[in-house]
Structure formats: C-alpha cells, structure tokens
Design a protein around this nucleic acid. Structure first.
Length: 306
DNA sequence: CAGTGTCAAGGTGGA
DNA sequence: TCCACCTTGACACTG
C-alpha cells in the first residue's frame, strides 16, 4: 500500500498549479508559469521521497490552458527533458501517480461541444504522464458524468464514447464512483461493457451507496484492475465532523482511517487522502498504516526516519 | 496596497 | 428559465 495526497503540499512555499487569466495569455507567460509549476512539482516530489510518501496526484493545472485552442505553443517539446527528469525521479523512487481532470470534463454529455472539448483535455492528461514515461499504472481518473434524466442511456453514451478514445488515454483512464449519481454498482456495470478499471471512493460510496459493504466494494473494484493497471487506487476521506456532508475534512480522523484499513485488510491498494491539510494527514496516515498493515510500501522505504 | 469580484470549461436541483 | 451550489484558491482589477 502506498499512501498519498493530491496536488498541493502546504509545507512547501510554492504551488505547482499556478495559473493566469485567459485574457493575459501569452507564450512567455505560459513558459514562465509552466517552468515555475514544474520546478515546484520537483520540490514536492523530493519532499515526498524524503518522507516516504509514494503516491501523489499531479494537478490538472500543471500546464495552464493546455487543451485550449489559444495554446499553440509546443510545451511538450520545450519542456521534454524536464518532464523526463521528473519521470525518472518518480520511477527511481517507485512512486505511483494519478491525475484527476475536473468537473468540466464530461464524456457522456449530450452536448457535442462538451465532448469535443473534453477529449483534448483527456489527451493532455495522458500526455503529461507519457512525457514522464510512466508506465500504465499511472492513471487518469474521471467520473462517468451526468444522468440527463436517463441514466441507462447516459451510461451507454459513456461506453460508446470511451470506445472512440485514443490509445494513450485508453491505457490510463479509470472511472470513479461519485457522491450523487453513479454508484460503485453503476461503475462496475460500465466496467463490464468496457473493461475500464474502477477506482473506489469510500466517502462517495457512503453518500451514494449501492448495497455493497465497504469490503465487498473494495474487492470488486480491485478485480477490475489488471496487472498492467497496477493495484486498485482508492480515494479515502474521513467524514467531516463539522462541515456539511460530502465536504472534505480539515484533517484525517485516524480512528476512522484505521477502521477503514481493518475493514479492507485482506486487500492491497494505494490510498489517496482527500483531506484539506494534505501532506500532514498523509504522514499521520502512513504512521497509522505501518502499525496496521505489515505490507505497507513505505515500511521498506525511502527513509522518513533516516 | 488592501479589498474583492471573478475565473475556460458542466450538471443538478430548487425557486 | 434562472440561479445557487459543488469547492477553493488565487489572479488581477479597483479605488
């Protein structure tokens, strides 16, 4: 098991997701920003290596406007060696990487223009991971999409559009159960039609259940991942004791996390903590998991204490 | 320089 | 049909 956190490290005085307004777009601005974001990503990964954090989600904002028509600059070529260097670092430390396009990326929308915008954005995500030369266990996670008053039809549309995606995206795309519309059971059905792996989100499963116990859900989602895909990825979040249901908590509830590990103990998976204080909770969780799980990846590793 | 309105992009559900 | 909400920060304009 590898444990990680998404996108931002609050212990480091930089952000890998700096952006700017479309109105102020210029090639110079893009180069400057991407240069900054990549150097920050390097710092975050170095922090992770030093602290035994072996799972990380790279922000979708790494390359501002990457899939927007305004962006004609070949950043792929310009920054190729830096991407490769980062990829080498990731592989040398046996890290796992994910990315998560945001809510605007919808494959099953009935609006054609939404789909034609979404596909280049998926291409961009796959491209980042390809430029790093990561193998296909580095994933791009997506929700199934909207329902539009006809879930069955909407799922069929997802299946159909999935079949039209280019190979670099197909190698990496996985679907995740969401908190309102598509349950684990729905995602497994889509898997049945497409073979796409299903990423399990525990909190979404809590708010939008389909009958499986957590243990069964983890097992069944885990079975959708092939050896090449790597082991199951899980998004874990504790219920927020203060905020509204579904909101991400400020910090991890270690008792809840330990209970989750106990429930799912027979299965190995990599665990992304969707919690506001990011790396801080990840470090706490890694400590807890070392006690609870003998096979945790970090135990062998890259030296938190050395 | 502080305060604040707004930001490429979608979908849902309530009024 | 319109608007708040999701979730969040931070860009960049205003005074």
């Amino acid at each position: 098991m590898k444990i990680g956190y998404p996108c931002i490290n609050r212990s480091i005085p930089c952000r890998g997701n700096r952006t700017f307004r479309l109105k102020s777009y210029s090639e110079e601005r893009l180069i400057e920003t991407l240069d900054y974001n990549l150097s920050c990503l390097k710092r975050i990964l170095a922090f992770n290596a030093a602290h035994g954090v072996l799972f990380f989600r790279i922000t979708s904002d790494l390359v501002p406007f990457a899939s927007h028509p305004i962006c004609t600059f070949c950043w792929q070529e310009h920054f190729a060696s830096i991407f490769k260097e980062i990829g080498d670092f990731i592989r040398n430390h046996d890290m796992r990487i994910s990315m998560h396009p945001d809510q605007f990326i919808v494959l099953n929308s009935p609006r054609e223009e939404v789909v034609t915008r979404s596909i280049p954005e998926l291409d961009y995500h796959a491209e980042v991971l390809d430029l790093m030369r990561l193998d296909r266990n580095a994933k791009v996670q997506l929700h199934v999409g909207g329902v539009y008053g006809d879930k069955e039809g909407a799922m069929e549309r997802f299946v159909q559009r999935y079949g039209l995606l280019d190979e670099p995206v197909l190698r990496r795309l996985v679907i995740e159960n969401d908190d309102r519309l598509y349950t684990v059971a729905d995602c497994l059905a889509v898997h049945g039609e497409t073979g796409i792996p299903v990423l399990f989100d525990n909190l979404h499963h809590f708010w939008n259940p389909s009958g499986e116990s957590v243990k069964d859900a983890v097992e069944r989602c885990g079975e959708t991942w092939t050896a090449e895909d790597g082991i199951l990825m899980v998004d874990y979040s504790s219920p927020d004791p203060v905020g509204r249901p579904g909101k991400h908590p400020q910090s991890i509830d270690i008792d809840d996390f330990s209970a989750f590990l106990a429930l799912t103990a027979p299965f190995d998976f990599d665990c992304m903590l969707e919690i506001k204080d990011k790396e801080r909770s990840a470090l706490l969780a890694i400590d807890a998991a070392r006690n609870d799980r003998r096979f945790i990846g970090q135990a062998a590793g890259a030296g938190g204490g050395r």
